[in-house]
Amino acid sequence: MTEANRTSNAHVSTVQLGELATGQALTAPIYTFKGSDSAAPSVYIQANVHGAEVQGNAVIHQLMTLLEGHQILGDIHCVPLANPLGINQKSGEFTLGRFDPITGVNWNREYFEHAAIVADIPNWYQANKALSNNELFAAFRVLLAQSCQQRLNNSWGISTGHQLAVTLQSMAHQADIVLDLHTGPKSAKHLYCPEYDVASAAYFSIPYSLVIPNEFGGAMDEAAFYPWWQLQRFCARQGRHFDVPVAAFTLELASQERVDMADAELDAMGILAYLSHRGVIAEKVQPAPMKRWGCDLANYKKFHAPKAGLVEYCAEVGHPLKAGEPLVTLLRLDQYGTENAMTTISLPCDCVPVLHFASASVHQGTELYKVMTKVFEIS
């Protein structure tokens, strides 16, 4: 579709994320809705960093469709199809694009920590403490953008995956709100939410939240909020108090290799409710009436296959499981006729299974399930 026959309010551009071996530019589209209020929060949303995790693209489509009917106050930048290399990494009918095929590194663990900036916050603040809060935030944002650019221009070069990730990160650093849309293998919807911002989980149309430490672990959400949280914490020790200026979340939108447009609209409405709460749009959008539950990341447990075999996944994701109820049944045809041919396994505690491995054929030690334990209600 050419710009001449478009009827959308979104401006379309592209970002170059690298180059293919044959020399062609590797690009992703950017859709920008320009806000009318420069004081309103700005938003960056991306999807499909992992190749098989396509539902986030459908959510972006539904969200942009909804935005056409709202008064937009803050700038909103949407980047679907954010990892063309991963998206096109196919084997037969399956998409393998979770790991960089060159290095084997998870595409979502390639972001830049800004360790030097974080370590130098005391000196940087001393040189900038006379600035107002808004001026301080603007200066810190410039610092982060410059750091990304220096990383991209490293004279020794950087890996393909790091090039792609830091390019995306440099765009995210321009926003006050960062949403990274993912899915699991076979998964219930869940939200990764930093400790300092748990209350925000009540706005998204997502029943389960993993409350993560205010630390950097390599993912986009952490890369976006971690330097700001460090700045806020240091300033608080100096007697200067303000909320963490940047909010960042990872939304896990059920299972990979799946597009469901009706479900995508529900999740888009949840994002719209959050944007309404933050003043990004003028209209009031109420969050979906639903129970929301949380779990500290330390209580998010992995269950690994005690032996190899064929697996029946008995526990339904997103549904509470009582201690002792069947989690999986392992079938070993090489041991047919013995008591070891079929084994039912349960867990010793109550939990909520959140996701499970996609394949029914597993090695010993395969991560079969991730489950929430010590679950609490989020008001």
Rank of each mutant, 00 (worst) to 15 (best):
T2G: 15
A4K: 14
R6G: 12
R6K: 13
S13R: 15
V15H: 03
L17G: 03
A21S: 09
G23D: 04
L26H: 00
L26M: 13
T27Q: 07
Y31E: 03
F33D: 04
D37A: 02
S38Q: 05
A40R: 02
A40S: 11
A47D: 15
A47N: 14
N48P: 10
V49S: 12
G56C: 07
Q62W: 00
Q62F: 00
E68A: 03
Q71W: 00
I72L: 04
L73G: 03
G74Q: 08
I76C: 08
C78S: 07
T95G: 03
T95M: 06
R98P: 06
R98S: 06
F99E: 07
P101H: 02
P101N: 03
P101V: 06
V105F: 00
N106A: 01
E110R: 13
H114Y: 12
V118R: 07
A119F: 00
D120F: 02
I121P: 05
P122M: 08
K129A: 11
A130R: 09
S132H: 07
N133D: 12
L136C: 09
A138G: 09
C148T: 04
L152S: 05
N153I: 00
G157Q: 06
G157A: 05
S159M: 04
H162A: 14
A165Q: 02
T167S: 09
Q169D: 06
S170I: 01
Q174V: 08
Q174L: 14
D176G: 14
D176Y: 08
V178D: 10
L179I: 14
L181P: 07
G184M: 01
K189M: 08
L191E: 07
Y192H: 06
C193T: 14
C193F: 01
Y196S: 08
V198T: 14
A201E: 13
I206V: 15
P207Q: 11
L210T: 13
I212R: 13
F216L: 09
G217H: 08
A219K: 02
A223H: 05
A224E: 10
A224V: 10
F225Y: 15
P227D: 07
Q230K: 09
Q230D: 01
Q230N: 04
Q230W: 00
R237Q: 13
Q238K: 10
G239S: 07
F242D: 12
P245V: 10
V246S: 03
A254P: 00
S255H: 00
R258I: 06
M261C: 00
A262C: 00
D263H: 01
A268P: 10
S276P: 06
H277C: 05
G279P: 05
I281V: 14
I281S: 03
A282G: 01
A282S: 10
Q286D: 14
Q286Y: 12
P287Y: 05
A288W: 00
P289K: 15
M290G: 05
C295I: 04
Y300I: 02
K302F: 08
H304V: 13
A305S: 15
K307F: 11
A308C: 04
V311K: 03
V311C: 09
V317Y: 05
G318P: 00
K322N: 07
A323G: 02
G324Y: 06
L327A: 09
L327M: 12
D334E: 15
D334S: 15
Y336D: 13
G337C: 14
M342D: 04
T344V: 15
C351T: 11
H356T: 10
H356F: 12
A358P: 00
S359G: 11
S359V: 03
S359R: 12
S361E: 04
H363Q: 08
T366A: 15
V371N: 08
M372L: 15
V375H: 08
F376A: 11
